[in-house]
Design a protein around this nucleic acid. Structure first.
Lengths: 195, 195, 195, 195
DNA sequence: TATGAATGAGGGTTCATTCAT
DNA sequence: TATGAATGAACCCTCATTCAT
């Protein structure tokens, strides 16, 4: 994932590039993209700002690299989805897998969710939109009733929202994830049955 | 330097405060809070930055004033909801009214949605969270099954997301609004029936 | 909104000018000239900034007017001193009177002492310097030994500093004033006897 | 006016921090703290304002750093004084050494003297007050007569005032310094003998 | 006698970015 | 691989002052 040139010994003490990504994502998610300065990131890592520029061309590129690394699973999921028959089981599986992807990169998705205005003017914004469009295509039947199309989109956003908005609901996190997944699955199931 | 001599825009008299709010909301919604500078707002209004400070103490206060003005209906709705019996009809009516409120102040809610990271550190963030908590209280039955609680939150979030995220779905806006409302209503209805 | 309509507090009528001076001096002495804004003064008085400009042409003029009002006694003292014989008794009386003058306008002198850098570029700075020069002339014998000249200046400065710097010495204020006066008197006395 | 082409000032390499302090102190002393803007300091050095922020976190920190550097001798003097017996000779030596310290950092002390109102709200204000308190403790006998205590304080302030207030007295600077020192020494001597 | 509304200049501060070393 | 030093643009905000009403 990190050292792309030779796969042998590239992750010894001081894989700075990776550490930058980690800290940056943490801060981006916590405080937002704009409010997180390169100075802050550098200080967290105990390096100078200039060091960041050795590893990344711009602030935006740090974000892009994180995004690209962490959203690969979505790309895979979409590609997989496209090759499947449009059955109910497929859609349910997509929902399940997407739920897992979200859980696996929660900070990034939280970040994307909470910084939409910012991200919209960034390259990742456009890319993310495309990904979501791809997701919609494999889950929505374009000939279905409008209401059912909305159900599918709602399913996706329920998963999203579930990650962050539902933290106020106090309950066992695992049970919550299961409940969210159930509601989302329910929505695509209803949408499918009406067809 | 600007148009001080031509008498074309002479109906602005004492409405500057309102005009600041209007322009600010528009820009905040379009570009985000951080990316919108007071210089920009001032330029749009053809006044100086200092003029803004005659009407508002800080940049944040501009946002607060907009927020307070436009979210009053939510407060009213919550108060109304608290006094109603917890019937299905009540919940459906709440969803319907909330949908209307959202439509009536779409730019603000879009802004809140898209600038969560920023807004979280602002006073409006806290206030908004409280409002949402109030909404949840009148729509969620705390003794209900967890899945049904998630359904209700999903309903609210569907309304929110629907306002902005569904712009990709091409269809008549009115029909879309109706479809969204139907899905949200459906969700609270299912939640209620399981009880 | 501010309680201007109820006629209960009618003794402030036409005394606004005086009230501005009072508040201004208090704030100038407390926070310094630069740190005290006209906005602050206006707010303390519950009037608008523009009102200040009805009574005074500039911020500086507020200070000038205060200064002129309160330092008249020094002018009188100097004029009196010029007409007296240069005896020891005269000098001692000058010290005594000056001490009284200082006590009678303590906030202003504290202000002048603590804002020398600022005041130097203001009109009052020049005026004050002239006054001090006048004082020196009636208390210092230009033909005296340099050390004795220094003694006289030291006497004056002891009176000044005593007003404010000696607040750390804990003692009865009246006794402190008496002690300060005694030291100052002593200094001019020594200076005189050496002649 | 800016002289960027002539190669005269090519020895500045890594000494920027020091140069900032030098110029800042000069301007602070000349015009006062508030009236001296960072823009002005930067222009004098032919760098940008932002460059100042590379070396110092805030405007106040520039002052603090200057203060800390230049008042170290006072700290040393106090420490020395504490370890000496409270004899007349010690006190006289303290006065002598303090006089030297003042002469060695005249611009700073002039600044402190003339910007008391400003400095009072700054960190250096508090620190300076503590230093002066320390000085008082080693020169004043707390059981002495109040008048004699005042004499000692007066001695200190005579030294201070001498640096700046006595510039009007026209005489050879060296002689003036000697005269001032004599008056101050005299004061502590008198105070001591009365005990 | 005041006020409401506005201005122009300037304040300190922060930022992403650059580049020689 | 990094750092030290610096920049230019922009930021939010405050100020004394003005003037029509």
């Amino acid at each position: 994932m990190s050292g792309t040139m030779d796969g042998t010994k590239r992750q010894r003490r001081g894989d700075t590039r990776q550490r930058i990504q980690d800290v940056a994502l943490e801060l981006f998610a916590e405080q937002g993209y704009e409010k997180t300065s390169l100075r802050e990131i550098a200080e967290c890592l105990d390096v100078t700002k200039a060091a960041l520029y050795y590893h990344f061309k711009t602030k935006e590129e740090i974000l892009v690299s994180i995004f690209d690394d962490l959203t690969q699973p979505i790309l895979d999921l979409i590609e997989w989805g496209r090759r499947q028959p449009h059955t109910l089981e497929t859609k349910q599986e997509i929902v399940r897998r997407y739920s897992e992807t979200l859980a696996g990169a929660a900070p990034l998705f939280r970040f994307m969710q909470e910084n939409q205005a910012t991200v919209r003017e960034l390259r990742v914004g456009e890319t993310f939109k495309e990904r979501m469009q791809g997701l919609r295509e494999i889950i929505i039947d374009p000939h279905a009733d409008l209401v059912d199309q909305v159900r599918c989109v709602s399913a996706i956003f329920t998963l999203h929202a579930g990650m962050f908005f539902l933290q106020e609901l106090e309950a066992d996190p695992e049970k919550k994830r299961a409940a969210i997944l159930e509601v989302a699955t329910d929505l695509v199931t209803q949408a499918h049955h009406n067809a």
